[in-house]
Amino acid sequence: MKPQLKTKFLKPALEVVEPSFGSSFAYINFSRNANLKAHVWHYHPEVELVFVNGGSGKRQIGSHISYYTDGDLILIGSNLPHCGFTDDTTGNMNEIVIQMKPDFLGDSFMQLPETKSIAQLFTRARGGIAFGPQVRNALGSKMDKMAKQQPFERLLTLIAVLHELEKTDDYKVLNAEGFSLETQVQDNDRINMIFNYVKDNFREPIALEDVSERASMTVPSFCRYFKKMTNKTFVQFVNEYRVVHACKLLAEKPIPISEVSYESGFNNFSHFNKSFKEVTGKSASQYRKELHAHLE
């Protein structure tokens, strides 16, 4: 018998960030399995740069949900809600988190001809940015070396890393243009309630009528509202969340694909196959085969 649906909804928690000693920004190098925040939905005014050194896991940033393999390099804009990227099954070597105020270099400095592109990078990061493997490997190693640098040298390295991130074309903005959770308080509370509801209950059937009622809206009004806020339909969002969880199970557990389908909230196997291909561009069996070939 499946558990009852949860009815308690949590807003994203405000994380208070303190700069590292002698620095204008926070730099933390976590050893493997030390930063277990994959379940924590939070936000902060600081821009966050995260390097996951190896391993695989789930990204949830704003309304975007995806699964990464072989590490990750992510830039998250100011006040963009997100979950952590690692848990005890990720298998990463370490994780580096750098958090800085958008104006940590000073407004005048950020308007210099040599540095104003960094301000543009921070603006682009409002949707969340994932960088490709070449950039990830090259800059991840620079971020790793910052652990042994003195504050001034560490600052210069960070500026150089941000400059390289701004120059590269090897990136993907994760949330559609125009997406932002920096809305009116009422909208913020409502959309966060919906995200938490899906996160807690995606394994169960989720009826539009039920979630519309929880949002105190009619079904048509809710559908228009959700599309306006996230640039995707609610059904699309739920299916993407379930498919990403299926990707995680395919990578981490040697269980039959039919069981992966059920554990991810799909009660209809043909619907699972169709949704999986729509989101990933391949079948579940092909995805698992290619992933294992890549890891061998």
Rank of each mutant, 00 (worst) to 15 (best):
65 I>A: 14
203 R>G: 10
172 K>T: 13
214 R>K: 07
200 D>A: 13
221 S>P: 03
223 C>F: 05
257 I>W: 08
251 A>Q: 08
243 V>K: 08
284 A>N: 01
13 A>E: 12
227 K>R: 13
72 D>H: 12
32 R>F: 09
227 K>N: 11
132 G>D: 09
250 L>R: 04
62 G>P: 03
125 A>R: 04
52 V>E: 00
248 K>H: 11
143 M>D: 15
105 L>N: 02
172 K>L: 11
222 F>E: 04
16 V>C: 09
241 Y>C: 12
208 L>Y: 06
72 D>Q: 12
60 Q>A: 10
209 E>Q: 06
25 F>N: 08
113 P>E: 05
224 R>P: 07
27 Y>L: 01
1 M>Q: 02
3 P>H: 05
85 F>M: 06
101 K>D: 04
3 P>S: 00
22 G>D: 05
190 R>L: 11
3 P>K: 06
18 E>T: 08
96 I>F: 01
127 G>W: 03
264 S>H: 11
68 Y>A: 06
60 Q>W: 15
218 T>F: 08
119 A>I: 07
253 K>N: 08
23 S>F: 00
245 H>E: 15
47 V>H: 03
75 L>Y: 00
88 D>G: 03
125 A>K: 11
230 T>H: 15
293 A>T: 03
260 V>Y: 14
34 A>G: 04
206 I>T: 09
154 R>P: 01
225 Y>P: 10
70 D>R: 02
40 V>H: 11
161 V>Q: 05
276 F>G: 01
288 R>M: 00
131 F>D: 07
133 P>A: 12
24 S>T: 02
134 Q>L: 14
192 N>T: 03
281 G>N: 02
20 S>I: 05
106 G>N: 06
175 N>R: 03
146 M>A: 08
150 Q>R: 11
62 G>A: 10
97 V>M: 01
81 P>N: 05
138 A>C: 12
186 Q>L: 15
1 M>N: 08
68 Y>F: 13
153 E>R: 11
245 H>M: 14
74 I>V: 09
246 A>V: 15
143 M>E: 14
4 Q>N: 06
135 V>F: 07
18 E>H: 09
235 V>K: 10
87 D>W: 04
211 V>R: 01
149 Q>V: 03
35 N>A: 03
211 V>S: 00
270 S>F: 07
257 I>F: 05
137 N>L: 13
142 K>A: 15
96 I>E: 01
198 V>M: 13
11 K>W: 00
161 V>L: 07
42 H>L: 12
279 V>F: 01
290 E>P: 01
23 S>W: 07
85 F>G: 01
262 Y>L: 04
282 K>D: 04
